[in-house]
Simulated assay, not measured.
Amino acid sequence: MEQFIAVAIAHFLALLIPGVDFFLIVRTTMTSGWRNAAGASLGIATANGVFIIAAFSGLAFISNPSVLAVIQLAGGAFLVFIGLAFIRSNTRFEPEQDLSVARTTWLTNFGLGIASGLLNPKNALFYLSLAAALAGAPPVTLIAYGVWMFMIVLVWDIFVAIAFGSRRALTRLGPVVPWLTKIAGGFLTVVGVSMIGSIVL
């Protein structure tokens, strides 16, 4: 029980740190509503599930330095692409805006969520470290941990989407949405460039 509490706390604290996934969900919520952002949330959780299965199954390829380098390069390019798209975006929210007329589809956001999760090397490294800490645990225990972590990622991300998708939140954040989008874009671009630079240079 103590081990589960320690793992659960470590995993949840990692979720609380805003990152690429957080910005993707918030922007999707503000432009297409929380229901479409739920697609991105499920995609992100699915990507986390892939890393959880790979790490807990002891698949060696995920810890291979070459594989991690490829993930980092691809992830960096993805972040630069998304970051520049955010910077160039003219996203605005008006209180009377009808978010039922989504700018992107649920399936498109699901795909973006998967890409965001799979191309983030920090996810792979995090679950590898957890797998190492749980070495020797029975398969049933690892399955239980994996299901728990998948569900927590999904529930937390959907909570973020709903929280930022409420009419009150959108009304309050409406005037600063363009600036938040560009700041997030700048952050993602810098992170992406630094990821690529750490491999290339």
Rank of each mutant, 00 (worst) to 15 (best):
I5E: 05
A6S: 11
L13Y: 02
L13N: 09
L15G: 02
L16C: 12
L16E: 07
P18T: 03
G19T: 12
V20R: 10
L24W: 06
I25V: 15
I25E: 03
V26L: 07
V26F: 02
R27T: 05
T29R: 09
T31E: 08
W34P: 02
R35S: 02
A38M: 15
S41G: 08
T46W: 10
A47P: 03
N48Y: 03
F51W: 15
I53R: 00
A55G: 09
F56G: 05
G58D: 00
S63R: 14
N64V: 05
N64P: 04
P65E: 09
S66F: 13
V67H: 00
A69R: 10
A69F: 06
I71W: 02
G76W: 03
A77S: 09
V80E: 02
V80P: 05
V80T: 08
F81V: 07
I82T: 14
G83R: 06
G83A: 12
L84I: 15
I87A: 13
T91S: 14
R92V: 07
P95S: 11
P95Q: 13
E96L: 09
E96P: 00
Q97Y: 01
Q97I: 04
D98P: 06
L99S: 10
S100V: 01
T104E: 10
L107W: 14
S116L: 08
S116W: 07
L118A: 07
N120L: 07
P121C: 08
K122Q: 09
K122M: 05
K122H: 01
N123F: 07
N123S: 09
L125W: 00
F126I: 07
F126R: 01
L128D: 04
S129A: 15
A131V: 13
A133N: 05
A135H: 11
G136N: 04
G136S: 03
A137N: 12
P138G: 10
P139D: 08
P139V: 12
V140F: 12
L142E: 02
G146M: 08
V147S: 04
F150L: 15
I152R: 06
I152D: 05
V153E: 04
V155T: 02
V155L: 14
W156R: 06
F159L: 13
V160G: 01
V160L: 15
A161P: 03
R168Y: 00
R172F: 10
R172S: 09
L173M: 14
G174E: 07
G174I: 13
P175R: 15
P178K: 07
L180C: 09
T181A: 06
K182F: 08
A184Y: 09
A184C: 09
V190H: 01
V190R: 00
V191Q: 06
V191M: 10
V193K: 12
S194H: 03
S194G: 05
M195Q: 07
S198Q: 11
S198V: 00
V200Q: 03
L201C: 09
